[in-house]
Computed example of a mutant assay.
Amino acid sequence: MLSKVVEENDDATVQQLLNRVDELKAEINKQGGRESTNEQGELAELRRKIREFQEQAEAESIKDVDITGATIIRSQLSGLAQVQFDTVIIDEASQIPVPLGILGMVNAKKWVVVGDHNQLQPVLKTIKTKSGSPPANASLFSFLRNRYDIERWLEYHYRSHEDIIGFAKSHIYDDRITVADLCPRGVDWDPEVDDMPAASAVAEGPPVTFVDVNGEQTWRQRYGAAVNDDEVEVVGSIVQAL
Protein backbone atom coordinates (compact mmCIF):
# COMPACT_ATOMS: atom_id res chain seq x y z
CA MET A 1 0.00 0.00 0.00
CA LEU A 2 1.24 3.44 -0.92
CA SER A 3 0.56 4.87 2.54
CA LYS A 4 2.81 2.21 4.06
CA VAL A 5 5.56 3.00 1.53
CA VAL A 6 5.46 6.67 2.49
CA GLU A 7 5.32 6.01 6.25
CA GLU A 8 8.35 3.72 6.12
CA ASN A 9 10.32 5.98 3.77
CA ASP A 10 13.72 6.82 5.28
CA ASP A 11 14.16 9.92 3.13
CA ALA A 12 14.73 12.83 5.51
CA THR A 13 13.02 15.33 3.21
CA VAL A 14 9.81 13.30 3.13
CA GLN A 15 9.81 12.98 6.91
CA GLN A 16 10.41 16.71 7.33
CA LEU A 17 7.51 17.48 5.02
CA LEU A 18 5.19 15.15 6.90
CA ASN A 19 6.26 16.57 10.25
CA ARG A 20 5.77 20.13 8.99
CA VAL A 21 2.27 19.29 7.74
CA ASP A 22 1.42 17.84 11.17
CA GLU A 23 2.70 21.00 12.84
CA LEU A 24 0.66 23.24 10.56
CA LYS A 25 -2.47 21.17 11.06
CA ALA A 26 -2.03 21.36 14.81
CA GLU A 27 -1.56 25.13 14.60
CA ILE A 28 -4.63 25.49 12.38
CA ASN A 29 -6.72 23.48 14.85
CA LYS A 30 -5.53 25.74 17.66
CA GLN A 31 -6.65 28.79 15.69
CA GLY A 32 -10.05 27.28 15.08
CA GLY A 33 -9.60 27.24 11.31
CA ARG A 34 -8.73 30.97 11.10
CA GLU A 35 -5.37 30.40 9.38
CA SER A 36 -3.66 33.18 7.46
CA THR A 37 -3.35 33.31 3.68
CA ASN A 38 0.38 32.58 3.98
CA GLU A 39 -0.23 29.45 6.02
CA GLN A 40 -2.88 28.29 3.54
CA GLY A 41 -0.43 28.70 0.69
CA GLU A 42 2.33 26.94 2.60
CA LEU A 43 0.10 23.99 3.44
CA ALA A 44 -1.02 23.69 -0.18
CA GLU A 45 2.60 23.71 -1.34
CA LEU A 46 3.56 21.05 1.20
CA ARG A 47 0.69 18.86 0.05
CA ARG A 48 1.79 19.28 -3.55
CA LYS A 49 5.34 18.24 -2.66
CA ILE A 50 4.08 15.26 -0.67
CA ARG A 51 2.04 14.11 -3.68
CA GLU A 52 5.16 14.34 -5.84
CA PHE A 53 7.19 12.26 -3.40
CA GLN A 54 4.37 9.74 -3.11
CA GLU A 55 4.25 9.30 -6.87
CA GLN A 56 8.04 8.97 -7.09
CA ALA A 57 8.12 6.48 -4.22
CA GLU A 58 5.38 4.41 -5.83
CA ALA A 59 6.99 4.40 -9.28
CA GLU A 60 10.41 3.43 -7.91
CA SER A 61 8.94 0.72 -5.67
CA ILE A 62 7.00 -0.84 -8.56
CA LYS A 63 10.15 -1.15 -10.68
CA ASP A 64 11.62 -3.57 -8.12
CA VAL A 65 8.72 -6.06 -7.99
CA ASP A 66 7.75 -8.96 -10.25
CA ILE A 67 3.97 -8.48 -10.20
CA THR A 68 1.83 -5.43 -9.51
CA GLY A 69 -1.93 -5.63 -8.91
CA ALA A 70 -4.36 -2.74 -9.33
CA THR A 71 -7.82 -1.80 -10.51
CA ILE A 72 -7.95 -0.39 -14.03
CA ILE A 73 -8.75 3.14 -12.84
CA ARG A 74 -5.95 3.02 -10.27
CA SER A 75 -3.46 1.98 -12.97
CA GLN A 76 -3.67 5.51 -14.40
CA LEU A 77 -3.23 7.36 -11.11
CA SER A 78 -0.13 8.48 -9.24
CA GLY A 79 3.14 6.60 -9.77
CA LEU A 80 1.55 3.62 -11.51
CA ALA A 81 0.84 5.76 -14.56
CA GLN A 82 4.58 6.42 -14.94
CA VAL A 83 5.55 2.75 -15.26
CA GLN A 84 5.77 0.76 -18.50
CA PHE A 85 5.11 -2.93 -17.83
CA ASP A 86 6.19 -5.95 -19.87
CA THR A 87 2.68 -7.44 -19.90
CA VAL A 88 -0.72 -6.34 -18.63
CA ILE A 89 -3.19 -9.09 -17.66
CA ILE A 90 -6.81 -7.90 -17.48
CA ASP A 91 -9.12 -10.28 -15.63
CA GLU A 92 -12.94 -10.37 -15.86
CA ALA A 93 -12.58 -8.53 -19.16
CA SER A 94 -16.04 -9.62 -20.33
CA GLN A 95 -17.49 -7.15 -17.79
CA ILE A 96 -15.22 -4.24 -18.78
CA PRO A 97 -16.33 -1.68 -21.41
CA VAL A 98 -13.84 -1.07 -24.22
CA PRO A 99 -12.82 2.51 -23.21
CA LEU A 100 -12.14 1.39 -19.64
CA GLY A 101 -10.17 -1.60 -20.87
CA ILE A 102 -7.93 0.63 -22.97
CA LEU A 103 -6.86 2.41 -19.78
CA GLY A 104 -5.39 -0.86 -18.56
CA MET A 105 -3.66 -1.56 -21.87
CA VAL A 106 -1.74 1.65 -22.52
CA ASN A 107 1.05 0.90 -20.03
CA ALA A 108 2.30 -2.22 -21.84
CA LYS A 109 2.93 -3.48 -25.36
CA LYS A 110 1.56 -6.96 -24.63
CA TRP A 111 -1.83 -7.81 -23.13
CA VAL A 112 -3.51 -10.97 -21.90
CA VAL A 113 -7.28 -10.44 -21.71
CA VAL A 114 -9.13 -13.02 -19.60
CA GLY A 115 -12.91 -13.32 -19.62
CA ASP A 116 -16.01 -15.26 -20.63
CA HIS A 117 -18.43 -13.80 -23.18
CA ASN A 118 -21.16 -16.14 -21.87
CA GLN A 119 -21.12 -14.57 -18.43
CA LEU A 120 -21.99 -11.08 -17.19
CA GLN A 121 -21.56 -8.27 -19.70
CA PRO A 122 -20.79 -4.60 -18.93
CA VAL A 123 -23.54 -2.41 -17.51
CA LEU A 124 -24.00 0.44 -20.02
CA LYS A 125 -26.79 2.77 -18.91
CA THR A 126 -26.30 5.15 -21.85
CA ILE A 127 -26.87 2.51 -24.55
CA LYS A 128 -30.38 1.12 -25.14
CA THR A 129 -31.12 -2.11 -27.01
CA LYS A 130 -34.40 -3.93 -27.65
CA SER A 131 -33.35 -6.93 -25.58
CA GLY A 132 -31.96 -4.85 -22.71
CA SER A 133 -28.58 -6.54 -23.18
CA PRO A 134 -25.48 -4.59 -24.18
CA PRO A 135 -24.25 -4.69 -27.81
CA ALA A 136 -22.21 -7.70 -28.94
CA ASN A 137 -18.91 -5.81 -28.86
CA ALA A 138 -19.59 -3.87 -25.65
CA SER A 139 -16.94 -5.58 -23.55
CA LEU A 140 -13.20 -5.46 -24.11
CA PHE A 141 -13.14 -9.27 -24.22
CA SER A 142 -15.90 -9.63 -26.81
CA PHE A 143 -14.55 -6.79 -28.94
CA LEU A 144 -11.11 -8.38 -29.23
CA ARG A 145 -12.49 -11.92 -29.51
CA ASN A 146 -14.77 -10.98 -32.41
CA ARG A 147 -12.08 -8.97 -34.15
CA TYR A 148 -9.12 -11.34 -33.87
CA ASP A 149 -8.94 -15.14 -34.04
CA ILE A 150 -6.42 -15.54 -31.22
CA GLU A 151 -8.42 -16.94 -28.31
CA ARG A 152 -7.23 -19.71 -26.03
CA TRP A 153 -9.88 -21.88 -24.40
CA LEU A 154 -9.39 -22.93 -20.78
CA GLU A 155 -11.25 -26.23 -20.94
CA TYR A 156 -10.84 -27.68 -17.44
CA HIS A 157 -13.26 -26.81 -14.64
CA TYR A 158 -11.96 -27.12 -11.07
CA ARG A 159 -14.46 -25.28 -8.88
CA SER A 160 -17.79 -26.96 -8.33
CA HIS A 161 -19.77 -30.19 -8.15
CA GLU A 162 -20.01 -32.07 -11.42
CA ASP A 163 -23.80 -31.62 -11.52
CA ILE A 164 -23.56 -27.84 -11.07
CA ILE A 165 -21.10 -27.23 -13.88
CA GLY A 166 -22.76 -30.01 -15.86
CA PHE A 167 -25.82 -27.90 -16.66
CA ALA A 168 -23.74 -25.01 -18.01
CA LYS A 169 -21.44 -27.47 -19.75
CA SER A 170 -24.33 -28.96 -21.74
CA HIS A 171 -26.56 -25.94 -22.33
CA ILE A 172 -24.10 -23.05 -22.67
CA TYR A 173 -20.64 -24.37 -23.52
CA ASP A 174 -21.51 -27.14 -26.03
CA ASP A 175 -19.75 -29.75 -23.87
CA ARG A 176 -16.39 -28.02 -24.38
CA ILE A 177 -15.71 -28.09 -20.63
CA THR A 178 -13.90 -31.01 -19.00
CA VAL A 179 -14.68 -31.48 -15.30
CA ALA A 180 -11.46 -32.05 -13.37
CA ASP A 181 -11.13 -35.22 -11.31
CA LEU A 182 -10.83 -33.25 -8.07
CA CYS A 183 -14.40 -31.91 -8.42
CA PRO A 184 -16.98 -33.67 -6.18
CA ARG A 185 -19.39 -36.09 -7.84
CA GLY A 186 -22.62 -37.82 -6.88
CA VAL A 187 -24.90 -37.12 -3.91
CA ASP A 188 -26.98 -39.07 -1.39
CA TRP A 189 -30.54 -37.80 -1.25
CA ASP A 190 -34.14 -39.01 -1.20
CA PRO A 191 -35.86 -38.21 -4.52
CA GLU A 192 -39.30 -38.62 -2.90
CA VAL A 193 -39.72 -34.93 -2.16
CA ASP A 194 -42.98 -34.21 -4.02
CA ASP A 195 -44.83 -33.24 -0.85
CA MET A 196 -41.93 -31.40 0.72
CA PRO A 197 -41.96 -27.56 0.76
CA ALA A 198 -39.78 -26.09 -1.95
CA ALA A 199 -37.36 -24.54 0.52
CA SER A 200 -36.76 -27.84 2.29
CA ALA A 201 -36.46 -29.70 -1.01
CA VAL A 202 -33.73 -27.33 -2.13
CA ALA A 203 -31.91 -27.45 1.20
CA GLU A 204 -31.98 -31.25 1.38
CA GLY A 205 -31.94 -32.00 -2.34
CA PRO A 206 -29.31 -32.50 -5.04
CA PRO A 207 -26.63 -29.98 -6.06
CA VAL A 208 -28.89 -28.53 -8.79
CA THR A 209 -32.60 -27.90 -8.23
CA PHE A 210 -35.07 -25.97 -10.37
CA VAL A 211 -37.97 -24.39 -8.48
CA ASP A 212 -41.04 -23.53 -10.55
CA VAL A 213 -42.45 -20.18 -9.40
CA ASN A 214 -45.89 -19.25 -10.70
CA GLY A 215 -45.39 -15.49 -10.63
CA GLU A 216 -45.60 -12.64 -13.09
CA GLN A 217 -42.55 -10.71 -14.17
CA THR A 218 -42.85 -6.94 -14.39
CA TRP A 219 -40.53 -4.30 -15.77
CA ARG A 220 -39.34 -1.67 -13.30
CA GLN A 221 -38.18 1.48 -15.05
CA ARG A 222 -36.41 2.66 -11.93
CA TYR A 223 -34.13 -0.39 -11.95
CA GLY A 224 -34.03 -0.78 -15.73
CA ALA A 225 -34.67 -4.48 -15.22
CA ALA A 226 -37.33 -7.14 -14.77
CA VAL A 227 -38.66 -7.89 -11.29
CA ASN A 228 -40.66 -10.87 -10.00
CA ASP A 229 -41.95 -10.37 -6.47
CA ASP A 230 -43.05 -14.00 -6.12
CA GLU A 231 -39.55 -15.18 -6.95
CA VAL A 232 -38.18 -12.87 -4.26
CA GLU A 233 -40.44 -14.51 -1.64
CA VAL A 234 -39.40 -18.01 -2.72
CA VAL A 235 -35.71 -17.11 -2.65
CA GLY A 236 -36.15 -15.66 0.83
CA SER A 237 -37.75 -18.85 2.14
CA ILE A 238 -35.03 -20.98 0.58
CA VAL A 239 -32.30 -18.87 2.14
CA GLN A 240 -33.98 -19.24 5.55
CA ALA A 241 -34.15 -23.02 5.11
CA LEU A 242 -30.50 -23.16 4.14
Rank of each mutant, 00 (worst) to 15 (best):
A59C: 04
E60A: 14
S61L: 13
K63N: 11
K63A: 13
D64V: 04
D64W: 00
V65Q: 13
V65R: 12
V65H: 12
D66E: 15
D66K: 14
D66I: 04
D66P: 02
D66C: 10
I67S: 05
I67K: 08
I67F: 15
T68A: 15
T68Q: 09
T68K: 12
G69T: 14
G69L: 13
G69K: 04
G69D: 01
A70M: 14
A70F: 09
A70K: 01
T71N: 06
T71M: 03
I72T: 06
I73Y: 06
R74L: 15
R74P: 00
S75E: 04
S75Y: 07
Q76S: 11
Q76A: 08
L77K: 09
S78K: 13
S78E: 12
G79K: 09
L80C: 04
A81V: 08
A81P: 01
Q82H: 07
Q82S: 14
Q82N: 14
Q82W: 06
Q82L: 12
Q82E: 12
Q82Y: 05
Q82P: 01
V83M: 05
Q84Y: 03
Q84C: 09
Q84S: 12
Q84R: 07
F85C: 04
F85D: 08
D86A: 14
D86M: 04
D86T: 09
D86V: 02
D86R: 14
D86F: 10
V88N: 09
I89N: 03
I89R: 02
I90L: 09
D91L: 10
D91T: 06
D91I: 12
